[in-house]
């Protein structure tokens, strides 16, 4: 009986996950820690593991005129070395743990792990990134924000694999990713705030805001972004309190938090306030 698979091609992988109850293992940085039962004990998988990390055809960074295409098994460290990597994405990868971890971690792993504290997620949400999801017989392109449905929950079926992450190239007047709290390991104590704004002739023409680790999923509210778009910068600043109030209801640090929810909510909203003040 074959109880695992180490494919060298995508087609073999898709066939295997189509015909077996399988579990994709990419960089394994999340899986090895989560499945570990104790030090020096073999991680235990209930489904047949498929080791995809070394599939060459899924390791690439390609640029088209409007997008950057990142192969599913490209370690995030390659994005740090690639000069066309969007600056926000680069920033979120720079704060991910250590060089050794970044040589294993992949974007699809970060997405499917679906932690509200996943560092690349707010960036992928803000940049309107998509993933290409393939099965043996079909493929579809889905926005990252529509892939994740809750903490550790995604729309991915067991016969499906992410093969590519597609990030639109955008130039913003101002953008930043701010991560508060422990640098690594202590993911649940983190709060992150990401913004990207386009300003033209003193008018906000594109506004995108995302909060990480203060709710079950990344918080990005496009209806609110639209509400505050196409207004003068000075007017936008005057609306500070209203904007904060609009976001307040969505900032809901998860229930099983042991850290102080009130504090985290306050910090998140302060980051929003600071952003408005200094824009």
């Amino acid at each position: 009986m074959v109880d695992y698979f180490i494919p060298t091609t995508l087609i073999d992988t898709l066939e295997f996950i189509n015909n077996n109850e399988a579990k994709i293992i990419s960089g394994a940085t999340d899986l090895m820690v989560q499945r570990k039962k104790g030090a020096e004990i073999t991680p235990y998988f209930t489904k047949k593991p498929v080791f995809v990390f070394n599939i060459k055809e899924l390791n690439f960074i390609k640029e088209s005129y409007e997008h950057i295409h990142i192969g599913a098994c490209t370690p995030v460290s390659d994005l740090l070395n690639h000069k066309g990597t969007p600056s926000l994405l680069r920033k979120s990868i720079e704060v991910m743990a250590s060089p050794a971890l970044r040589n294993l971690a992949t974007l699809p792993g970060n997405i499917i792990n679906a932690s509200p504290a996943g560092d690349t997620l707010p960036i992928l949400y803000i940049l309107d990134a998509s993933v290409k999801i393939e099965t043996l017989n079909s493929n579809r392109i889905v926005k990252v924000k529509d892939v994740i449905t809750g903490p550790r929950r995604t729309i991915l079926n067991s016969n499906e694999m992410i093969t590519e992450v597609i990030v639109p190239k955008e130039e913003f007047t101002k953008s930043d990713f701010v991560k508060v709290g422990g640098r690594k390991a202590d993911a649940i104590s983190k709060i992150s705030f990401t913004y990207a704004v386009k300003i033209k002739e003193n008018k906000i023409i594109d506004l995108r805001l995302a909060f990480g680790a203060v709710g079950p999923v990344i918080i990005r509210k496009e209806e609110l972004e639209e509400k505050y778009t196409n207004i003068e910068l000075s007017k936008f600043k005057e609306l500070k309190q209203e904007i904060i109030n609009d976001y307040r209801q969505y900032i809901t640090p998860i229930n099983d938090q042991r850290s102080n929810k009130e504090y985290r909510k306050k910090v998140a909203l302060n980051l929003l306030g600071d952003f408005i003040d200094t824009l």
Partner: peptide
């Protein structure tokens, strides 16, 4: 040739 943590790497990789 790239640095990794061998405690995170499954043999299959």
């Amino acid at each position: 040739d790239r640095l990794v943590n061998s405690c995170l790497v499954p043999l299959g990789t």
